[in-house]
């Protein structure tokens, strides 16, 4: 395998050289700070490098889209965040954004236009699906996941919120894996429990935590890999698997990681 030197171009540098990337990779807060999710960010960047996409990140200039503040009820804070992000991206004349976080995706795509931010926004699952369809990502015989049982956990903000159900599944199919569905999937998919700013507080009193309920359902499928396409889902499902003491047998992975791994990146 030839060693690739991975590059992560930063928007400010590009702009200084008068260049503009084809697509901006919006990393998101989890992608930037969460130890586990940083691996997903790197995996996705490696794929972008391998394919030779002209991309850039905002780097230190990026800041939270404001999604959790908005869902918690703090509209001021949300709009402050949104406005400054929009000012920044409009200054860079950003046209197209790809992000691995469904919450960022939803906010950038659906909520920024009303505040003056109009971009073509696309989730990394759709982006990966396009790369695969265009033959830019070629998985020879599916790599190490061939024939393995994988189940896909729908993210609410990708699925019901934006009707993206098939793209992540098609990406998994490209791995030549055996895709098994949970009892509740697609439009009926059960939330991981983290949305609506729940990620940032303890759950309310109840019989059970939502991620445990969902993890049980995922484990029932007998899949050895639980695929996710959202940083919050990834955390919640990984916690659930740990709670069930199954982390040695069952891996929780993002679809970008699976592709990167299958490609040997």
């Amino acid at each position: 395998m030839s060693e690739i030197e991975y590059k992560v171009p930063v928007m400010a540098d590009m702009a200084a050289q008068g260049q503009s990337p084809e697509v901006l990779f919006w990393v998101g807060c989890a992608g930037s700070f969460d130890e586990r999710y940083k691996q997903v960010t790197r995996a996705f960047v490696k794929i972008l490098n391998k394919v030779g996409v002209s991309f850039a990140v905002l780097g230190p200039e990026e800041s939270c889209t404001g999604d959790p503040a908005r869902r918690a009820g703090n509209e001021f804070l949300f709009q402050m965040q949104a406005m400054s992000n929009i000012q920044l991206m409009n200054a860079y004349e950003i046209k197209k954004i790809v992000t691995a976080c469904p919450h960022c995706f939803n906010t950038l795509k659906n909520e920024y236009p009303e505040l003056g931010g109009n971009y073509e926004v696309i989730h990394h699952s759709t982006y990966l699906q396009q790369l695969i369809n265009e033959g830019k990502v070629k998985l020879q015989g599916g790599g190490e996941f061939k024939g393995k049982k994988i189940t896909y956990h729908d993210s609410c903000y990708l699925g019901r919120a934006n009707k993206v159900y098939e793209a992540p599944r098609e990406v998994l199919q490209a791995l030549d894996a055996e895709l098994v569905e949970m009892k509740r999937c697609k439009t009926k998919g059960l939330c991981c429990g983290a949305g609506g700013a729940q990620m940032f507080k303890e759950p309310e009193k109840g019989k059970k935590d939502i991620n445990i309920e969902r993890t049980e359902e995922a484990l029932e499928t007998g899949a050895k890999i639980i695929a996710a396409a959202c940083p919050f889902c990834l955390t919640m499902m990984a916690d659930g698997v740990k709670n069930k003491e199954k982390e040695a047998e069952v891996a929780v992975m993002d679809i970008a990681e699976l592709i990167a791994k299958a490609e040997g990146l």
Binding site: Y6, V8, V10, V27, C29, G31, S32, F33, K38, T41, R42, V45, K46, V57, G59, P60, E62, S63, C64, P68, A69, M199, F200
Partner: peptide, 17 residues
């Protein structure tokens, strides 16, 4: 960021890529 991290550390993920 919703977590308490220094904004200057935001891009550190790229260091060890």
């Amino acid at each position: 960021s919703p977590w308490k991290f220094a904004p200057s550390d935001r891009f550190n993920w790229a260091n060890d890529i």
